[in-house]
């Protein structure tokens, strides 16, 4: 089970590197979306590993609510894109 978490951590490092490397706003948003899903999945796996309901509930909540933040941010960025030809 520890091996699985280490492998998930390695998978998490890829989008973090991508977010650092790429200077295009939508590529960064993609990396953010990937990280949001991956971290909440890691929380879920840890909660099952430790048999802890409380952490599990938090993982599910973050999984379902964290994406809402992404959509709001995507729309704000899209609108500033349109109004001012904001070139990244």
């Amino acid at each position: 089970m520890n091996g699985i978490i280490i492998a998930m951590l390695l998978a998490l490092l890829i989008p973090i590197y991508e977010a650092y490397r790429d200077s295009h706003i939508w590529q960064k948003m993609l990396a953010f979306a990937s990280i949001a899903t991956k971290t909440s999945m890691m929380i879920l796996v840890v909660s099952v590993l430790r048999d802890d309901w409380m952490i599990g509930v938090v993982g599910v909540l973050i999984l379902s609510v964290g994406n809402a933040a992404l959509m709001l941010l995507a729309h704000v960025i899209k609108r500033s894109d349109e109004a001012g030809v904001y070139e990244p």
Partner: peptide
């Protein structure tokens, strides 16, 4: 966007 990534990692 980076602050969002930091928030996700911090929650983890």
């Amino acid at each position: 966007v980076m602050r969002g990534i930091l928030g996700a990692v911090a929650a983890l």
